[in-house]
Design a protein around this nucleic acid. Structure first.
Lengths: 233, 233
DNA sequence: GAGTGGTCTAGACCACGTC
DNA sequence: ACGTGGTCTAGACCACTCT
């Protein structure tokens, strides 16, 4: 039994949303300005503002000073994806998380990695490969490069005990993050690690993080067959 | 030359963020309540509230009435992905968009599709397969089911002229959307359509939309080799 | 019960961008 | 230049939820 809350900003938002759905305001149309809206709907301007903020964030409406508020002519779907630490992702599925360190080596980054991190190729890095398990079965393969100038402390961490993923998330907060999602075919190594056959289609996520302008780490995670990412609005 | 704006909510947010980064407030710690924070930082409580709203939305902090504000002990990465209409996606890459209708048939939905749409299997649907092109080369394959009870009008639309994607986005606003991202191997048909070889690893997105509780459409889009999705914070 | 965040109001001023 | 949205303030009350 949720009370409708006749004049809350959510109610105001929904009433404006409804007018867009029912074509009172059509794609491209200009909406009344906030003050008029407030008077029409019987609330204060701040409430309209809060409602509009939400509509604007969800991509339904576009606001510009002096230009006014318009219904977006070509709506975009905006979805927020949450990427938790991998142990938690597995445990939230009700499964037992396991972890194996496959390799660990201090190396200069190859050109591709340096480019991805926007980093000079002469900076010392740590290269780590690891496998995450769910119920003792391969779940996610992780190929990571860590900038030792930014995250020097990790050099003395025992990465057999705690995954680089988890250590970094807890100890290296970031201010910028870039993501790419794509598909790739398993090569021999990957197939062996994930207990599948070469050439299997796999889902990959590449994530690079910075603190201010300093690169911290770049990682490519590759899910075992069947792995998928979900989101909803 | 941007003025720092010493007491704007963004400034307040950044100052709190900085305290989290520099470990004044550590993961799991409780932050002072808003009123104290406001007094300490020399602004009004509403400004702190606005700053906290932002920190909370971006997953850095967790707020609960009576419980107070805590630094999230296991931070999640939150990223917003924008999915525009496909024509626009191609045009924004500076390429020419093309489109081919491959098939169109009114059919009852197979069980898998009915489940995905949370729909009874006896509702009439329209099944549409199409190919989007960029610079005359295959870009994205689209396999779509449309609920004819909800979107009856589309039955009389010429889908050779306008893509179902575009017509639906412009004419059928939705209130709920679910997405799945995963990888799959090309079968013979798909390989032919996308001018690639069978078994190639491809990136797929499944999207289902509803208006209130009524399903509108479910679509699986499959990108040509090399297709990827990007996002950043 | 009481502490904390969530929201609403009214009014003022500011910043941006279109006209 | 000026119209519009963006923000700040101060104060009040409400709604959760922990104890």
């Amino acid at each position: 039994m949720t009370t409708p809350q006749r004049h809350s900003w959510k109610d105001i938002r929904d009433r404006i949303h409804a007018r867009i759905l029912d074509r009172t305001y059509r794609p491209g149309d200009k909406l009344p300005h906030d003050e008029d809206m407030a008077q029409t709907l019987g609330c204060s301007r701040s409430t309209v503002q809060r409602a509009m903020q939400d509509l604007s964030e969800s991509g339904l409406v576009e606001r510009r000073r002096k230009g006014g508020t318009h219904v977006r002519p070509e709506p975009v779907a905006r979805v927020t994806i949450e990427i938790p630490i991998i142990r938690k992702e597995v445990e939230d599925l009700g499964q037992r998380h396991g972890y194996q360190l496959l390799s660990r080596a201090a190396l200069p980054p190859p050109a591709e990695i340096a480019t991805r991190m926007e980093l000079s190729a002469h900076v010392p890095c740590l290269h780590v490969r690891a496998l995450h398990l769910a119920q003792d079965r391969p779940y996610l393969y992780e190929d990571r490069w860590i900038n030792l100038q930014t995250a020097a402390e990790i050099d003395s961490v025992d990465l057999c005990t705690i995954s680089a993923n988890e250590w970094l998330v807890l100890n290296m907060p970031y201010t910028r993050c870039e993501l790419r999602f794509f598909a790739l075919a398993a090569d021999a190594d990957l197939a062996k690690a994930l207990h599948t056959s070469p050439n299997t289609a796999l889902f990959a996520i590449e994530r690079t993080t910075w603190i201010d302008t300093q690169p911290i780490t770049t990682v490519r995670t590759i899910g075992a067959p069947g792995y998928q990412l979900s989101a909803s609005t």
